[in-house]
Simulated scan of single mutants.
Amino acid sequence: MGMLHYGTGSEPIHIEDRALAHLKVVIATKLRRNESFTLSWRHHDGDPEGRSTIWLHPSIPLRFVFDEPEPPQLNSKWIEELMHSASSTGGIQLVDEVLETPTE
């Protein structure tokens, strides 16, 4: 389980390593363009029920911490879906991985 540290002194946000690797690509792309947006997710089992949203801005410190030493192979469809949601008025909705379907 990876962690996203956002701002100073706040509790880390626990996100599964694979999802965090995909989010990192999308978040870095948006922030590199100097774009602000929201990130929303449902709380994990064991946490209080509900969901959370944070406002991501290039001036706020951000750190990604992964449990796995090697980065996973990225799924371009999932990145595309996350980028699409990042550009919407609702911001990034952390959705389950979009699996690539083989074409015949």
Rank of each mutant, 00 (worst) to 15 (best):
P48V: 01
L94P: 10
T53Q: 13
H43G: 04
I60V: 14
I15Y: 02
T53C: 06
S52D: 14
I13Q: 08
I60L: 02
S87A: 12
H14K: 08
Y6D: 02
K77Y: 06
H84R: 14
H5F: 15
S76C: 10
I60G: 01
H44P: 00
M83T: 11
L31G: 00
M1S: 06
V25M: 07
G50K: 09
S36M: 11
S85P: 05
G91C: 06
S10N: 14
H22K: 02
E35C: 02
P61R: 03
W41C: 05
D67R: 05
E81M: 10
V26P: 09
I27W: 09
I54H: 05
D17K: 06
P72W: 03
M3S: 14
E97K: 04
H57C: 02
T29N: 12
V26F: 00
G7D: 14
L94Y: 02
M83V: 03
E68L: 15
P12R: 05
E68C: 15
E104Q: 08
L23V: 05
D96K: 08
V65S: 08
L39A: 04
L56H: 00
K24A: 11
A21N: 07
S88C: 03
T101H: 07
G2I: 09
L23N: 06
A86M: 00
E81V: 09
G90H: 09
L39V: 12
E68H: 15
P102H: 10
T53L: 02
R32V: 01
H57Q: 05
V98G: 07
D47A: 09
I27N: 01
T53S: 11
G46R: 02
P102I: 10
S40M: 01
S88V: 03
L99C: 01
M1H: 10
T53A: 10
H57T: 01
K30C: 08
P69A: 03
Q73G: 07
E80F: 03
L31W: 00
S59I: 11
P102G: 11
T89W: 02
E11R: 13
I27K: 03
F66Y: 09
I92L: 06
F64C: 04
S52W: 04
S85V: 03
F64M: 03
E97Q: 05
W41P: 05
H44K: 09
S40V: 03
L20N: 04
H5V: 15
I54F: 02
R42V: 15
P102S: 13
S52F: 05
T101V: 13
H84N: 10
E49P: 13
L23E: 03
L62S: 07
R51C: 14
S40R: 04
D45N: 09
A19I: 11
I92H: 03
E11F: 12
S59L: 13
M83S: 07
W78D: 14
S76W: 07
N75A: 08
L94S: 07
L56E: 01
S36Y: 08
Q73S: 14
Q73T: 12
T53F: 02
L62Y: 05
H14R: 13
T38K: 07
I15L: 09
I60F: 04
T89K: 08
Q73N: 10
D96P: 07
T103H: 11
T103M: 12
I60E: 07
T38A: 10
W78F: 14
L99P: 00
